[in-house]
Simulated scan of single mutants.
Amino acid sequence: MAKHASNSIIKFADDTTVVALITNNDKTAYREEVRALEVWCQENNLSLNVNKTKEMIVGVRKQQREHPPIHINGTVVERVVSFKFLGIHITDNLKWSTNTVSVVKKAQQRLFNLRRLKKCGLAPKTITNFYRCTIESLLSGCITAWYGNCSAHNHKALQRVVRSAQRITGGKLPALQDTHTTRCHRKAKKIIKDINHPSHCLFTPLSSRRRGQYRCIKAGTERLKNSFYLKAIRLLNSHD
């Protein structure tokens, strides 16, 4: 549980991530949170691996202020411009080229196995199932979070993999844009039904005259217009 409302602590297996919102360049709450985590680990006989601990400052402003480094157990924590979080590459400028390049590279490697299966004479249905399990699952992993803000170049690179797989399988495969749309709509409906979801409050029903219609956060920038939330609102209002 975070000590400050502006901070969040995310735990997954043996990994712990501290996320902090820094306002007016005031990093007091953030530094206190890191210090509290360090003390808690010491009191509970847990050792923090500082060499594997990374710090990343996320921001889209052209001019960034200098931020003093964080220390854990007297050691400076390395500051990075990107890191892998739950399988997704996140960068400090909130762009997705690094993640896309990684996904495309892995997917192309798996296309080799798809070609080998075809040469072995496996049935088209079996080859397609292999594609869906090993390649499509990779291309669509957390797609609601990153696909909407990918560049046109990234979209083309991803779709080329799908077209290559389609030529190998010999059957029609769903385009990633269609997969993204379906996943966004499905996820939005789940969030609306779950009052405990952190994003539930972002979906506000409109007046009773427009039953089934919702509004979300203001689309002030192009990046926000392409976000999951605005995409979800458009889909909900068009389907319902």
Rank of each mutant, 00 (worst) to 15 (best):
N51C: 11
F203R: 00
N25R: 12
L236A: 01
K193M: 09
L94Q: 13
K106I: 09
K52I: 07
Q109M: 10
M56V: 09
F130N: 00
F228Y: 10
D15H: 08
V58I: 15
D92T: 11
N196C: 12
R31I: 12
L48F: 07
A232E: 01
F228A: 05
I70Y: 07
H200Y: 14
C133T: 14
I90Q: 06
G170S: 03
P198H: 08
A152F: 08
E78I: 06
Y147P: 02
R210A: 07
Q109W: 04
M1D: 12
Q63L: 13
W146P: 06
T91A: 08
L236Y: 02
K52W: 11
G171R: 11
S199T: 04
K218M: 07
I70T: 15
F12H: 14
P124Y: 05
K118G: 01
K218V: 12
I195Q: 09
A157G: 10
A188T: 02
A152D: 12
K125F: 09
A36S: 14
V60R: 15
E55Q: 15
R167D: 08
K106N: 12
Y30T: 14
L139C: 03
G59F: 08
T75Y: 04
E33S: 14
M1P: 12
V161A: 02
T181Y: 01
Q109I: 05
T221M: 00
I9N: 06
K11G: 07
D194W: 07
L86F: 13
Y147I: 09
R163M: 10
T100N: 13
V101N: 14
N226C: 13
Q166Y: 02
H4R: 10
A36F: 12
Q63M: 11
R115W: 03
I217C: 08
I72W: 04
Y229T: 11
R183N: 09
E33A: 09
P124L: 02
G141W: 13
T126G: 00
K84A: 14
H185E: 09
L117E: 01
R223D: 11
D15F: 10
V50N: 04
M1S: 13
V39T: 12
N49K: 06
G148F: 07
H71G: 00
V77L: 10
Q177Y: 09
K125I: 11
E55K: 07
N129A: 13
E33Q: 15
N7C: 15
I88G: 04
T221F: 03
V162M: 03
C142W: 04
R110H: 09
H71P: 00
P198G: 06
A36H: 11
N237L: 00
A232L: 00
T134D: 01
Q166I: 01
S140Y: 02
V104L: 10
L21R: 10
I143W: 02
N51W: 04
V103I: 15
D92A: 11
S82P: 02
S164Y: 01
N93A: 05
P205K: 01
T179Y: 00
R167E: 08
R234I: 01
K156V: 12
N51L: 11
R211H: 12
Q108G: 08
K11E: 14
S6H: 06
G148N: 05
I192V: 15
K62R: 15
R167G: 06
H89C: 14
H185C: 05
N25H: 14
L206H: 02
